[in-house]
Design a binder for these strands. Structure first.
Length: 642
RNA sequence: GCCGAUGUAGCUCAGGGGUAGAGCGUUUCCUUGGUAAGGAAAAGGUCAGGGGUUCAAUUCCCCUCAUUGGCUCCA
């Protein structure tokens, strides 16, 4: 008998007959393992547990504890969902049903039927019923013509659309119970593994992600092998809700929206104002040290400027419509760059002046689609931590590197550990349409950017067709504590606008030369950054950022006057302090201060008043005991240092 | 912009064809207390806005606005 050598993840090698399956291997190890095997990885390819191994291979058996195991499990669950849908709603047309980070979805065309939350229970029960049949997922290779015939007979236009792009010889069907789907696989051995099922939500989703196509109903769901895991997952979702910046923003009175002001136009409450001030002080300090100069520009500009910059043709739809003044169109600025370019151009520049770094917390207005608005993360008015660096080609590398270093410095300050730099490049096919038509410059600047990234040794990914219209960019993706991904900051190279604005400096040879421009906004916008920080810190902001750093809690009205003195003293030291004058008991005041997430509570009563001191309690309950007032102030000043 | 859901007091929510309720918060009074909720009373709502059906609409229907889960988009 012919044998194959199977190498397991721990390096152990075993011999099995040719044609053995991962399931055979699992059975030979232990029955318990075999019961839990969902799929397998053979030489880094995820396959069914029934895959026939015909050559020497590396094998890992995948269970629920493996990411690929979960993905396979959820993918199979999507098939189960589809089977249940066909049973309950004969004639539904199925789109695609992939696994996602948590769970899976299936895109479905219900025809005239309106699928709603009310159908969730019914669907869940049907899925449970079908899961219990322990139906095996059976793989079958089919020819393209047979596949087309099958779906033509079934009348499934979406599957036929998918088949168009598939090559004959690579097409497989999977069948479980009465349901057959076009699918590459792999799948779990049988439906019996699927025990706990929850339909989560529905949404509209365009077929193939194209808004010109029909919108299908997307059903989101999740499944688990155990009920306890489903419960844990649902609890995690609840926890995530508690950290949502929209909830915290309301509870901590950071910002609000008002119908009369308009959608996407946040009003910053005093607590939000304090955060903004803290962030700006920090940014200004760092930028001052980095050789930036601060400028200030108006919120509107004539149409001619945006025609010159080239923004208007590209972004007209997402700018607020123009207002006509004295027969001329003015636009609210959606970006600060053109204003800064004009500031650069205002005075003649020598190569000796470069690099010039112009910084501004500029307020911009973007007419985001109504459906895009999302708390503070997507808004229509935004205060940007903006700056533009004008430098020579020789200076570019160092400048660009410094900007990247600045990003890393900020991440450290805010304890941001999880991030990805996304190097966004142009798509040559879209030159002149989405991207400025200067092919050789694209290639040159992209190479320059890549060089810096490689040199710095930061982790980055390259993506096509994501650049700005005027040059390549680096987007910084960060992940909030609740797993939401954001493009927080961006760092862009611009080789086009200097030409358009006729920006130049006089070089060593007494000739005019174009500067390269770097656009950067490492602290994003106040809106997005504060939204992110609220989630990142779960509302428990570090002292330097906390809108209320200290709250004084007099034990009784008798010590109110002393409490006022304490507040006055702290305010003199630029500490954001306030006092709770309600005639409540200390316990109640402490509770309320805890709920408001104030970092420091100062309890003052008889002994504190006598000793010109305060009893210090930190948020969370740590008791620092009695401290001299000055001693406490020093501590806060030190902690709040930028 | 598109598909779906939601909109009742400052907040979180209950209610339901006969013009409204709770808890928290707020104000006042009592209480003057030592590290996560003391007591009482009061104020507070055109039930998002507009239209329709009805003797009667906050409730049912339609439209608009806003929020929201997604899709598309994001200089």
């Amino acid at each position: 008998m012919n044998l194959v050598t199977i190498t397991l993840p721990d390096g152990a090698q075993r011999e099995y007959p040719v044609g053995c399956t991962p399931m055979d291997v699992a059975l030979s190890i232990s029955e318990g393992l075999a019961r839990n095997v969902l799929a397998a990885k053979v030489d880094d390819k995820v396959v069914d547990a029934s895959f026939e191994i015909t050559q020497n291979s590396n094998l890992s058996l995948l269970t629920w504890n493996d990411t690929d195991g979960k993905q396979t499990y959820w993918h199979s669950s999507a098939h189960l969902l589809a089977e249940a849908l066909e049973a309950l709603f004969p004639g539904v047309k199925l789109g695609i049903g992939p696994p996602i980070q948590y769970g899976f979805y299936y895109d479905v065309d219900f025809g005239d039927y309106k699928f709603t939350d009310a159908d969730f229970d019914k669907l869940e029960s049907k899925m449970r019923e079908l899961a219990k049949t322990n139906s095996a997922f059976v793989r079958q290779e089919v020819s393209k013509s047979d596949a087309i015939t099958y779906f033509e007979e079934k009348g499934d236009p979406y599957k036929l659309d998918l088949l168009k792009d598939l090559e004959d010889g690579s097409i497989t069907f999977y069948q479980q119970g009465n349901f057959t789907d076009l699918c590459r696989g792999p799948h779990i051995p049988h439906t019996g593994h699927i025990k706990s099922i929850k339909i989560l939500s529905t949404a509209g989703a365009y077929w193939r992600g194209d808004e010109k196509n029909k919108q299908l109903t997307r059903i989101y769901a999740i499944t688990f092998p155990k009920k306890s895991e489903l419960d844990a997952h649902l609890e995690m979702l609840e926890e995530a809700k508690k950290r949502d910046h929209r909830k915290l923003g309301k509870e901590l009175e950071i910002y609000t929206f008002d119908d009369d002001v308009g959608p996407g136009l946040p009003l910053w409450l005093p607590n939000g104002g304090a955060m903004i001030e803290a962030l700006e002080s920090y940014a200004k300090k760092v930028e001052r040290e980095g050789g930036y100069e601060r400028v200030k520009s108006p919120h509107i500009a004539r149409e001619s400027m945006y025609l010159k910059s080239g923004h208007l043709p590209y972004y007209k739809d997402s700018m607020y419509p123009p207002m006509e003044i004295d027969g001329v169109n003015y636009y609210l600025k959606a970006m600060n760059c053109p204003h800064h370019h004009k500031i650069f151009a205002a005075t003649p520049k020598s190569y000796r002046d470069l690099p010039i770094r112009l910084a501004e917390y500029g307020t911009c207005y973007r007419y985001e689609q109504s459906g895009e608005l999302f708390g503070l993360m997507r808004v229509r008015s935004l205060q940007m931590n903006d700056a533009h660096i004008y430098c020579t080609e020789a200076q570019f590398e160092e400048e660009f590197q410094n900007v990247n270093a600045l990003y890393l410095k900020h991440f450290e300050k805010f304890g941001i550990e999880k991030y990805v730099m996304r190097f966004s490049k142009h798509d040559p096919a879209r030159l002149g349409e989405k991207y400025i038509d200067m092919p050789e410059l694209w290639i040159k600047t992209e190479a320059m950017v890549r060089k810096v990234l490689d040199k710095m040794g930061v982790n980055y990914v390259e993506v096509e067709d994501e650049a700005a219209f005027y040059g390549p960019k680096i987007d910084i993706q960060v992940y909030s504590a609740i797993g939401r991904e954001f493009t927080l900051a961006t760092n862009q190279v611009d080789f086009a606008q200097a030409e358009r604005f006729d920006l130049f400096f006089i070089n060593e040879k007494n000739e005019k030369e174009r500067p390269i421009i770097i656009h950067r906004a490492p602290l994003s916008t106040h809106e997005r950054f504060i939204g992110f920080l609220l989630e990142h810190y779960a509302g428990r902001l570090p002292v330097w950022l906390a809108p209320k750093q200290v709250i004084v809690l007099p034990i009784s009205d008798k010590y109110a006057a002393y409490g006022d003195e304490v507040v006055k003293f702290l305010k003199k030291h630029d500490i954001r302090a306030s006092i709770d004058h309600r005639s409540e008991k200390a316990g109640k005041k402490i509770r309320d201060a805890e709920v408001s997430k104030t970092p420091y509570m100062l309890i003052v009563g008889e002994k504190e008043a006598e000793a010109n001191s305060v009893s210090v309690r930190m948020h969370g309950g740590t008791d620092l005991g009695l401290m001299e007032l000055q001693q406490f102030a020093d501590r806060i000043i030190d902690e709040a240092k930028l």
